[in-house]
Design a binder for these strands. Structure first.
Lengths: 226, 226
DNA sequence: CGGTAGGGTGTACGGTGTACACCTGTCAAG
DNA sequence: CTTGACAGGTGTACACCGTACACCCTACCG
């Protein structure tokens, strides 16, 4: 039973699967080759190097983005696109980091950016307003915003006693009162849970709508740069 | 002439200098130890591991941020803070990547975030609006926005002939018309210079002001979440 | 004077990406 | 039917990385 031959498709699929279940760090040329039952250098017959492998993985995620129907107006259409991108990125926990680390603009990346830009243009936005709003959206067009208060992996030290925890919170409150304030606001008032309870989805949509509303106002006023 | 002893300060300073002139990738424990005239393992007496080294480098950049005077209103104060952060980050080309890769919140990081949040609070914004706007600003707090159209390093292939270039542009125009459109708009119409001519500073301030204006309007209306 | 501790050293391990030479099976042309 | 090219999998090797661990030297303190 000769195993079916490797293809670029099979390599990329296996890489995505491996990253899905073991994290992005598990995707090394050696590790990936092992799950494919093959020697590391075999991969290089299908993928130029590791960067291209990562590019291909990102392209696979982009391939999962959905295209909104034509009945939506431009704000709703952009919203639908970005929220679809977000769902895909959230399905693959590693995608965020991978996208952030990529610098190459593959055809899939360009195609997606073109679709988003086209949605603005079809809504009647000028070329330069479209340009600026694309920049303003930044990584949000990939469905994520930078996580300011990203919860540290945790559980690396023995849990502190109640007494120690009280002291830590007090010290924190003295030095970073405003951070504590806004962090606990999101948890319903428990300062020891700060950061955990933050609703990322809400934050994403809040910022997205803030930007879209602002752009819409500029558009209605016939804003021009320079 | 016994050289003066290493200190954490000296290590960090050397790391920053090395990154400034040779890039972040040149900052390996081996490379750094070499410029300090010392054996790699010596560094571990002053820095727990490489992650902590990077954290220290980022903290050094944060130490260059300036505090705005108390005479400014909250939008101007935030603006001044973020633009100062931007100047510091731009002085150190590696800082962007370093900040993006960091996940640990050092006291310096928390202190800066606290200062920004405090500026909003002193301006009268509610705790939860402050929370959301911090998220919405995202990495812009550190003075940079993600570069959608980051120019590839380039110059790795022989420059294409005029004929090839024309063909490439034509192909690009066919597949990604809107991307080409908004990319050339920023260059005054030269499609072959697409992406290079984009004024990052303008984009940063455009997005920043869009967000600040939006937040200000929400604030004036007494916006509350939920 | 002796012990102790902080700081620099040397060696070694396991991991990474990948260059390069090699082999092997398939298939088309002579 | 043979031959030879070629696509694809193999094996070895190199240079680099972060860092664990044992060691030694030197300065200082009791």
């Amino acid at each position: 039973m000769a195993r079916e031959p490797l293809t670029r498709e099979r390599v990329l699929r296996a890489a995505v699967a491996l990253a899905d279940e073991s994290g992005l760090d598990a995707v090394s040329m050696r590790g990936l080759s092992q799950v494919l039952g093959v020697v590391p250098m075999a991969l290089y017959k299908h993928v130029a190097n590791k960067d291209e492998l990562l590019d291909g993985m990102v392209d696979a995620v982009i391939g999962e983005f959905e295209t909104p129907g034509p009945e939506l107006d431009w704000t709703a259409a952009v919203r639908a696109r970005l929220l679809s991108a977000r769902r895909a990125v959230l399905r693959h926990g590693w995608a965020r980091r991978a996208i952030e680390s990529r610098t190459r603009r593959t055809p899939a990346v360009l195609g997606y950016m073109d679709a988003v830009a086209g949605t603005f243009r079809r809504g009647g936005l000028s070329v330069d307003l479209t340009h600026h709003v694309m920049h303003a959206l930044g990584n949000r067009i990939w469905g994520f915003s930078p996580e300011l208060f990203d919860a540290p992996p945790g559980a690396d030290a023995p849990p502190p006693t109640a007494e120690e925890q009280r002291a830590m919170v007090a010290e924190f409150a003295r030095r970073f009162p405003h951070v504590l304030e806004i962090a606990t606001a999101a948890t319903g008032g428990d300062p020891t849970a700060a950061g955990q309870g933050c609703d990322e989805q809400f934050e994403f949509e809040f910022a997205l709508d803030l930007l879209l509303d602002g752009v819409q106002r500029l558009h209605e006023r016939g804003w021009r740069s320079g």
